[in-house]
Design a protein around this nucleic acid. Structure first.
Length: 116
DNA sequence: GAAATGACGCGTT
DNA sequence: GAACGCGCCATTT
């Protein structure tokens, strides 16, 4: 059967990112069933054809904003992230482990890490 | 059809 | 932790 287009799956994966949560391009691609297509995700977002998509929750694997520092999208994304309670420092965000994203989507473990 | 470009990722230095 | 380099994928010139 004709599977949904890769673009559709990627868009769905991005929409599945919970409020106040962030994910990397590679993570989104993998969640969409397209491992190694991180660049495809970036290209789709660059098009911006879709509406109401939380594109600002998609960051690089390093937790850094993909846009160039000082550019319009950069400031926009940073502003939106902070508006959701995400801590952005020096254009950087604490990248959650993949397990954390799974937990946020499927069920967070009550075993919170204490002390650090 | 080859080369260049881009909201990327990972390993190495 | 930052800088550098190479690899991968899809579109455009």
């Amino acid at each position: 059967m004709a599977d949904l287009s890769a673009e559709t799956r990627i868009l769905a994966a991005i929409r599945d990112i919970p409020h106040g949560q962030v994910a990397g391009y590679g993570q989104v691609a993998q969640r969409a069933g397209l491992p190694g297509r991180a660049r495809l995700v970036a290209r789709i977002l660059s098009r911006g054809d879709d509406d109401g998509l939380p594109w600002h929750r998609v960051l690089r694997s390093d937790g850094r904003i993909a846009f160039v520092e000082g550019s319009r999208g950069y400031r926009e994304q940073q502003r939106r992230l902070r508006a959701e309670g995400v801590v952005v420092v020096n254009g950087r965000v604490r990248m959650p482990a993949e397990a954390s994203l799974d937990a946020a989507l499927w069920g967070p473990p009550p075993k919170a890490r204490a002390g650090r």
